[in-house]
Write a protein that binds this DNA or RNA. Structure first.
Length: 898
RNA sequence: GGGCGUUUAGCUCAGCUGGUAUAGAGCACCUGCCUUACAAGCAGGUGGUCGUAGGUUCGAAUCCUACAACGCCCACCA
């Protein structure tokens, strides 16, 4: 093995090997139980960011874990055409060359976007591969490929025929920059500090005025009425009057509508049906014709005074207020914080816009999707998101699906001059009503999410009922960010039930957002991006994956800084070095290589545990390992990946490396018994193999690499069993290896060693001064156990000799400590500092006293004795007695020092 | 306006169903070590009234209530 692990070389080689061998491929004919995931398809023009890294690492951990646990796994990869976003990117690029899509024409423009798609598609998929994602790339799909487009058309036609898709003129969210309609979800509301303008609208008869308030005075040009609450007495005597709409001279009426809140402002509302959703509804109720005063670029237009025509909406706002003020019609202007919709793709303030659009009627689709969450057929991780989902489902509104852009699925609706609308999967030859062949297809395309919501089944070949879909649908987990619960997750569930009749997945993992150390979202414009590819280049993919997952609790945001990735790199390094140490101790089968580290007597690891020859440290590590195996599996199955990282990290580093390998060095380095050497190395190899398997889902590359080296040094028919660790069986706990007694004994041993090391360290005793230890044991059991471990104590605490003797005389002067009633003395003539010792023992005495007092008062409490469970009381008693023993011995030792 | 989340060591965070003799980890800090796997390391150590105030309980970082600060989401706040 190389002295240094080189991630970039290893990762590239291994990923290529996995691909070549077809290890990621899912087999629909397999007898094994299936486990499937569909990837949240990244935007095809996207570049890998940390959000992708987190999202795909989570999915890959699950998939690799299930693959090793004996499932036939299928992870479907693919990309999304991301309508508006992609069109914007390409348009911006074209603008640099002085081109725009209108000059090019639709066909040429869409062709250009396809070219982009081909180029960028390669970027994002290559990057996903760098993350180690074990997707079945042979099945990769794109939301605009032929099969998915067919599914989109089929769904559209079916919903139309079922009267769940309709077309009509309504107020929708409109982005004047993208010049397209948006769904409610695509309008992001942000709190802005605006103004509330109070305007005076004079009565026609000159008898005064009514005051109305608005945040968007420019829309007054489109006012058609003033509304008041029918129960509002203030307007009883004036509401028959006509009002002259300022600046236009148009006469408009009062209307009465229960919608109006009497408490807000003056209780009178200007009504602009063409430019406000509420006013639109009022307009419908009162048969008022909308007056459109803005065009699709939010430029003033229509039957308004000449001077305002052609003005931008915000410029017009200023001018209108100036003009009204000049006419004495501005009553007051208040500061007013209110939330304003912004385009989620370009951040432009959206304008409520009256236009002809296609909609999906959502209520009927929502019913089964709502029930599924309520009944917990679909579960959320963390569970709190269920409420968010349920609230949205219960208040669901119709979905505006038409977009006035070119990149996407063109709406499969054709118009005939006779007025007929033909909705069909394929281009119709002629109008069924008038037989005309002169049909025009709707120029609009569908919302990007109208193809994404079919993703879990359209990617499997639906509507065709094939073997693949039978095997892998429904999928099991969906891992994504909470931001797209409404856009995507909720709609996929609705689509799954409605079109396939089955839910699309059962578990939804909602992970956090990736942020920088100061909590800001990572974004290009803020310049706070940490590029995953740079991290991979500098630290390795495994280090990136492990670090990110380890610091991320389920569902919480991830805060990344430059130093975040040290932890994973250091851990990989530790694992590498431990493996290298073990393997370099095995004498090469072909003979002596001249490596001084090689241990004579061991030429290969034996994969079977030497059950009859296990020593106490072996029993200890194997017992510990069983807990780790159990806890790892539980943590991954519960999607608590950070916990899994901590479990394997602590075990590998602080038990296996710090204690077990160190303890086994005694056997490795001795020259007498070759069996002892082989056992020591084989046992280390066994534990290492277990660690590699447990860790593989999180750190796929380094574990596979070490696995390969381990196999080479293992006798044939090895525990390794497979060429690739990817298919090695994920460890299962073996209850027969659990040994609580030995675990307890080891805790005691470790604490004794730590106590002796502390004495050494605090007294600044150099490593080459060995010294001796005397242990006066607390009881027979401890005496027997510790006496059997004197060699280990000597090794770890750097002692020349340790004596365990119940009847020994206390040494006149020594460093001392009490561990669970066992009194330890470190005897090192002239090197123990009386002051240091006095200080530590004094501190220890004080600590024990306060603990004893706490335990005592607890035990004296009648309530505690009578109400707490008997075993808790018993434990407390034992604890108290133990503290008293330690206290007494510590106090005596302190006395001895004087 | 409604809802959700967070608040634990100097920093970043774990801590699940209330009870482990001392509430953990990484980083940072202090001391000593280039000990024949690893200085990206080893050994030892310092550092906490678990946001505030109440409550439930024999027992609360953990459960409940209120409050505060910060963050997020939703809403037809004219």
């Amino acid at each position: 093995m190389e002295k240094q692990y080189n991630p970039s070389i290893v990762e590239e080689r291994l990923y290529a090997h996995w691909m070549e061998q077809g290890y990621f491929r899912a087999d629909e004919t397999s007898e094994k139980e299936k486990y499937s995931i569909v990837i949240p398809p990244p935007n095809v023009t996207g570049v890998l960011h940390m959000g992708h890294a987190l999202n795909n690492t989570i999915q890959d951990i699950i998939i690799r874990h299930k693959r090793m646990s004996g499932f036939e796994v299928m992870w479907m990869p693919g990309t999304d055409h991301a309508g508006i976003a992609t069109q914007n990117v390409v348009e911006r690029r074209l603008a640099k060359d002085g081109k725009n899509r209108h000059d090019m024409g639709r066909e040429a423009f869409v062709g250009e976007v396809w070219k982009w798609k081909e180029e960028y598609h390669a970027t994002i998929t290559t990057q996903l591969k760098k993350l180690g994602s074990s997707c079945d790339w042979s099945r990769e799909r794109f939301t605009m490929d032929e099969g998915l487009s067919e599914a989109v058309r089929k769904v559209f036609v079916r919903l139309y025929n079922d009267k769940l898709i309709y077309k009509g003129k309504y107020i929708i969210n409109w982005c004047p920059r993208c010049r397209t309609a948006l769904s409610d979800e695509e309008a992001e509301h942000k709190e802005l500090n605006g103004k509330l303008y109070h305007l005076k609208y004079p009565y026609e008869d000159g008898s005064g005025h009514v005051s109305v308030a608005t945040t968007r005075p420019e829309t007054m040009l489109g006012d058609v009425a003033v509304a008041v609450n029918p129960a509002d007495d203030r307007y009883r005597d004036v509401k028959h009057k006509k009002i002259v709409l300022p600046l236009t001279g148009r006469a408009i009426p009062f209307i009465e509508d229960g919608f109006v809140d009497r408490e807000f402002g003056t209780g009178a509302v200007k009504v602009t049906p063409a430019h406000d959703p509420n006013d639109f509804q009022m307009g419908l109720r009162h048969n008022l014709e909308p007056v459109v005063v803005m065009d699709e670029g939010a430029v003033m237009t229509g039957g308004i005074p000449e001077k305002y025509i052609g003005m931008d909406r915000f410029e017009c706002r200023k001018v209108i207020i100036e003009d009204l003020a000049a006419a004495g019609l501005v009553e007051k202007i208040d500061d007013h914080a209110h939330s304003v919709g912004h385009c989620y793709r370009c951040d432009t303030v959206v304008e409520p816009y009256y236009s002809d659009q296609w909609f999906v009627k959502m209520k009927p689709l929502a019913a089964p999707a709502l029930a599924a969450a309520v009944n917990d057929e679909i579960k959320f991780f963390p569970a709190r998101w269920k409420k968010t989902y349920v609230d949205w489902m219960e208040n669901i509104r119709d979905w505006c699906i038409s977009r006035q852009i070119w990149w996407g699925h063109q709406i499969p609706a054709w118009y005939c001059n006779c007025g007929e609308i033909i909705v069909a999967e394929e281009t119709p030859a002629k109008c069924p009503k008038c037989q005309s062949a002169n049909l025009t297809q709707d120029p609009d395309v569908l919302d990007t999410w109208f193809s994404s919501w079919l993703w879990p089944f359209s990617t499997m070949g639906w509507p065709e009922d094939n073997e693949f879909m039978k095997k892998f649908y429904p999928t099991d987990t969906l891992a994504t960010a909470p931001e797209i619960i409404f856009f995507w997750v909720a709609r996929m569930i609705m689509a799954g039930y409605h079109f396939v009749g089955k839910l699309p997945f059962t578990d939804i993992i909602l992970h956090g957002t990736v942020r920088d150390k100061t909590g800001r979202k990572m974004s290009k414009s803020l310049g706070n991006i940490i590029d995953p590819l740079e991290i991979i280049a500098a630290y390795g993919t495994d280090a990136l994956r492990f670090s990110m997952i380890m610091i991320t609790a389920q569902g919480s945001d991830v805060f990344l800084g430059k130093d975040t990735f040290d932890i994973g790199r250091n851990f990989a390094n530790k694992l590498w070095n431990a493996s290298r140490f073990l393997l370099s101790n095995i004498k090469n089968a072909s003979g002596d290589t001249g490596n001084p580290a090689e241990t004579a007597g061991c030429r290969a690891l034996t994969p079977e545990l030497p059950i009859g020859r296990l020593k106490s440290e072996d029993k200890w590590i194997l017992s510990k390992l069983q807990h780790v195996v159990k806890n790892m599996d539980d943590a991954i199955n519960a999607y608590r990946f950070n916990e899994a990282c901590h479990i394997i990290y602590d075990f590998t580093w602080h038990e296996f490396c710090d204690w077990y390998i160190e303890a086994k060095k005694a056997d490795m380095y001795q020259d007498g018994d070759p069996q002892l050497k082989t056992d020591a190395l084989s046992l280390c190899g066994y534990v290492l193999a277990s660690i590699l398997k447990l860790l593989h889902p999180i750190m796929p590359f380094i574990t596979e690499e070490i696995w390969g080296h381990l196999r080479e040094k293992t006798v044939s028919g090895s525990a390794a069993g497979f060429d690739s660790i990817m298919f090695a069986e994920y460890p299962k706990p073996d209850p027969s290896l659990i040994d609580e007694l030995t675990e307890g004994n080891f805790e005691l041993l470790k604490n004794c060693i730590i106590a002796l090391r502390t004495i050494r360290s605090e007294n600044n005793i150099p490593p080459d001064k060995t010294g001796t230890a005397l242990i006066i044991p607390a009881n027979k059991d401890a005496a027997g156990w510790l006496a059997s471990q004197t060699a280990t104590i000597n090794l770890f605490a750097k002692l020349s000799e340790t004596t365990v003797d119940e009847n020994a005389q206390k040494p006149a002067f020594a460093g001392s400590a009490v561990v669970r009633g066992n009194q330890l003395f470190l005897i090192l003539e002239g090197l123990i500092d009386k002051k240091v010792e006095t200080e530590r023992l004094t501190k220890e005495t004080a600590r024990l006293k306060s603990m004893a007092a706490a335990a005592k008062s607890k035990l004296e409490s009648e309530n505690f004795i009578s109400r707490a469970p008997a075993d808790v009381v018993e434990k407390e008693r034992e604890k108290y007695q133990g503290i008293l023993v330690n206290l007494e011995k510590t106090e005596k030792a302190l006395e001895n020092l004087k």
